[in-house]
Design a protein around this nucleic acid. Structure first.
Lengths: 217, 217
DNA sequence: GACTATTTATAAGT
DNA sequence: ACTTATAAATAGTC
């Protein structure tokens, strides 16, 4: 998926350049008067309240529409639940089944199955205990030197910050986390696609698309 | 002018008509030798197996992507579960929540309104939409040089990471966020205490519309 | 709530 | 797979 995007991006080199230049200019001149092109969005929490609410409405309807289409076109079971920040609940379930039933099935499925082709995760990660003292950092695991440094830098600096800075910084870290998540999810999606071809077909009849894999990546 | 507007609407209407006619024709004449225009799809189960599988993959990716974006952009909780016809499970849960948690919340909310597409909402409002791009990292805002560097470091490096690294890194960022939050909370508590005597309302962090929406529209 | 300009998603084609 | 043509989604506006 990311590769597809990459290709497309190459095609749109011109546009990209244009955008990057604009962004660079905006940074230099200070944020503010820059107006985004229509239809283009950064992957981060929308700051403006009104805008965020409007977008939520539009995007929510689009998401549900897509979910519905997937269920119909591909004969898949789909369950979708969305809570607005205000706590309102919106849900969609493809067939006659209920959300309870579909979610229930998730729990019943053993790890082996889930592990194989699942896109996202109920992995143990992501639950943060705010137990540690800042002076006593958890040992900076070696993901890469850069990352370790970045993390230390963040946390050390944090102690010196004003409220405003803190608030802003929290936003930044939140955004960074969002970016990381998105990338990971896309990678998972990629892998899932790749592995799909290697997966045996439980109920094959006639032609099978999974039988024609020509190696893995 | 009004005529222009009318013209546009007519064009749209034509598209709709065309589509509907095509669908109707397909039904009456049976399955087809008919070649659809690119990008155009009838809302019905795809008969061709290969095609169905291919589109399932693509659309599934798109759906999850959008679900993720909605959660990030609009700060909403999202749970999405998809079963392929083969019975494989794909799921996505927005943040630190689990499917079970979100599901649990569903049960607690009584009144349900179901619309045309099987979409249920606890709110009279309609539905909505979403979309996003992975290659587009959030712009590095400058809070301090250190922070900017850290953030950029994070995001740049992230693109090169393996899955294992990504997972680990996500964990680190999550922890960092937790740390920042804890610090901010402590500071808020301090300030609140201090200023409580002055009977002043120091700062509000919220631009969370969940807090401001008291229920009506 | 509707309109238009753009971007994104994606059905077909190679 | 990779590319291209089209449709759909949607951000910015009024």
């Amino acid at each position: 998926m990311a590769e597809d995007v990459g290709r497309r991006r190459m095609q749109q080199q011109q546009q990209e350049d244009e955008r990057l230049k604009a962004a660079a200019a905006a940074v230099e001149e200070g944020v503010g008067k820059r107006k985004r092109k229509r239809g283009r969005v950064e992957l981060r929490r929308i700051e403006d309240r009104t805008s965020r609410q409007v977008r939520f409405s539009k995007r929510r309807s689009g998401l549900f529409k897509k979910a519905f289409e997937l269920s119909v076109l591909c004969d898949a079971e789909v369950a979708l639940v969305v809570f607005s920040p205000a706590g309102r609940l919106y849900e969609f379930v493809s067939s006659d089944t209920s959300v309870e039933q579909i979610f229930g099935r998730c729990k019943d499925i053993p790890d082996t199955v889930i592990d194989d082709l699942n896109i996202a995760a109920r992995d143990p990660r992501g639950y943060c205990n705010i137990q540690f003292d800042l002076n006593e950092q958890p040992a900076p695991e070696s993901v890469s030197e850069l990352n370790s440094f970045a993390q230390m830098a963040l946390e050390l600096d944090v102690k010196e910050m004003s409220m405003a800075e803190l608030t802003r910084f929290e936003e930044i870290v939140t955004e960074a986390l969002a970016a990381v998540k998105s990338i990971r999810i896309m990678k998972v999606a990629e892998l899932t696609q790749t592995e799909a071809r290697l997966k045996r077909d439980p109920q094959k009849k006639g032609d099978n698309w999974s039988g024609q894999e020509s190696g893995k990546e």
